[in-house]
Simulated assay, not measured.
Amino acid sequence: MTTAPSPCINWCDINPENGYCRGCYRTLNEIADWSDMTNSEKLEVWAQLSIRKPQAPQ
């Protein structure tokens, strides 16, 4: 089984309005805990990222 990769893109800047990193859209806790998370937990975070990421106007 392959471990879920980190969504980090090396642009770390926490948005004070919503608490999400502007690069990967994780919270500070998710970033700090990433290496200790199970693969299932990482996949749960990945599932949330597309919801958190602002959608581009059509």
Rank of each mutant, 00 (worst) to 15 (best):
D36E: 13
N10Y: 15
L43T: 04
C24D: 09
D13N: 08
D33T: 11
W46Q: 07
W46A: 07
Q48F: 00
Q48G: 14
N29A: 14
A32F: 11
P7D: 12
N39L: 00
S40N: 12
M1G: 15
R26P: 04
E30R: 00
N10M: 15
I51W: 04
P54A: 07
L49A: 08
P7S: 14
D33W: 03
Q48L: 14
T2F: 10
P54Y: 07
M1E: 13
A56L: 13
A47T: 05
C24Y: 01
L49R: 05
T3G: 04
W34C: 01
Y20C: 06
A47K: 12
T38N: 02
N39W: 03
N15W: 03
E30D: 14
Q55K: 11
Y20S: 02
P16M: 01
N29M: 05
W34Y: 09
R52A: 06
E41G: 03
M37L: 12
P16K: 00
R22T: 12
R26D: 07
S6E: 05
A47V: 01
N18W: 07
I14E: 08
C24Q: 00
P57W: 00
Q58V: 07
I31L: 12
T2Q: 07
C21W: 02
N15D: 15
S35A: 14
G23M: 13
A32R: 07
A47R: 10
T27N: 08
N15I: 05
D13L: 02
K53V: 08
D36G: 12
A32N: 14
P5R: 10
G19A: 10
T27G: 08
L43C: 08
